[in-house]
């Protein structure tokens, strides 16, 4: 029989951390791509597009991530497709992330002086050209710190994927607890691993923020 020593517990948790990291990366990268599309619509000239994206953002920011996970998990299954926790978790976290990133980036875009829009428009640039060459490069500078800060929320968000049976760090902790009956040790380790993942990002985000304030 397998003996659950401290090192076995730690090893299993660290192995599961891989899936937390991978799911976070998927959600963050795909969420960033979708978020960029949402951002373009959110700050566009079309009122209909703007209203639509406001609704989209409100929908994902105004409901619990846990519910979104359930809806994707049970909802996609209704289409007759077998959903793995991987697919459901990736989808839910991607859309959730995209809504938050779009809203963060909107703030950065709106911080760009109006004159920049007018100047580029007077150079006969199209909306996409304005965004691509004038607005986004400037907005990017102020967007980095809050974006890095939000990545911490994404990592913490992946913990909820455990609820739909995705075996990442939190789920592995629950399973190890069931096998060892040492909840204090297991959950302390789980928390510390999350802390080790998140704290450097939080710290880096704060440092970037400080540097930006000096530059201005």
């Amino acid at each position: 029989m397998l003996e659950f020593t401290f090192s076995v517990i730690l090893e299993n948790l660290l192995l599961a951390t891989r899936w937390t990291i991978l799911l976070s990366l998927i959600a963050f990268v795909l969420g960033g791509v979708v978020g960029l599309i949402v951002l373009f619509a959110r700050v566009s000239h079309s009122r209909a597009l703007r209203t639509l994206t406001i609704g989209y953002i409100e929908l994902f920011q105004g409901t619990p991530l846990l519910m979104q996970l359930f809806l994707f998990f049970f909802g996609v299954a209704l289409l007759g497709v077998e959903v793995s926790p991987w697919v459901a978790a990736s989808l839910a976290l991607t859309f959730w992330t995209s809504a938050f990133l779009a809203e963060i980036w909107r703030g950065c875009v709106e911080a760009i002086p109006k004159g920049q829009w007018e100047a580029s428009e007077s150079l006969a640039m199209t909306y996409t050209e304005q965004m691509r060459h004038v607005i986004l490069p400037q907005a990017l500078r102020i967007a980095v710190a809050p974006t890095v800060g939000f990545s911490v929320q994404v990592i913490k968000g992946t913990a909820l994927a455990s609820v739909i049976g995705f075996v990442e760090l939190t789920k592995a902790g629950t399973m190890l607890n069931n096998a060892t009956f040492r909840p204090f040790l297991v959950y302390t380790l789980v928390a510390l691993i999350y802390f080790a993942l998140c704290f450097p990002l939080s710290w880096y985000s704060k440092r970037l923020e400080g540097r930006l304030n000096v530059a201005r």
């Binding site: 911490v152 990592i155 913490k156 968000g157 913990a159 909820l160 455990s162 609820v163 939190t170 902790g173 629950t174 607890n177 040492r182 909840p183 204090f184 297991v186 959950y187 302390t188 789980v190 928390a191 999350y194 802390f195 998140c198 704290f199 939080s202």
Partner: peptide
């Protein structure tokens, strides 16, 4: 503050509900 802000709520909850009774 840093401990709470850098760990998921669900883990905090499990720690309090499952972990603390052990001590």
């Amino acid at each position: 503050v840093e401990l709470i802000r850098n760990t998921p709520f669900i883990v905090q909850l499990f720690f309090i509900f499952f972990g603390l009774p052990a001590i």
